[in-house]
């Protein structure tokens, strides 16, 4: 297959560098109360691996590759869906007491 946008060499390193700093900055300012949901949330985000497994399965040419691709999609889908559900369940429960709700909104 022909890929028009190839990511090689230094371009790849630049993406890696910037993404690493983005991750660091996003998590760095998180209050401790959100650490568990955030760990779960980042766990959900790497569930994107499922699209790679989908590519591998669709391009499988042998039975072995089909089996591996199947397992990969299965696991990746579990990662994404499970990560979403538990994170959403946890975050749903975070509610301010009514009196402080307005002041919290101001900060945002």
């Amino acid at each position: 297959m022909e890929i028009t946008t190839t990511i090689t060499g230094f371009v790849a390193l630049y993406i890696f560098l910037l993404a690493a700093f983005a991750g660091y900055e996003i998590i760095g300012r998180v209050p401790a109360i959100l650490h568990t949901p955030l760990m779960s949330g980042s766990n959900f985000v790497h569930g994107i691996v499922v699209v790679g497994a989908m590519w591998a399965l669709l391009n499988a040419g042998t039975t072995l590759e089909q089996v591996i691709g199947f397992v990969g999609v299965l696991l990746g889908a579990g990662n994404a869906a499970g990560g979403y559900v538990v994170t959403e369940r946890m975050l749903e429960m975070f509610k301010p007491s009514s009196k402080a709700a307005s002041s919290a909104d101001d900060k945002e």
Partner: peptide
């Protein structure tokens, strides 16, 4: 390996954020 930028970015962000956590 797959030339998939979404995986690169999401994976790297989680890698660094997870290390910090």
């Amino acid at each position: 390996v797959l030339q998939n930028p979404a995986m690169i970015i999401a994976g790297t962000v989680v890698g660094s954020a997870g290390t910090l956590l």
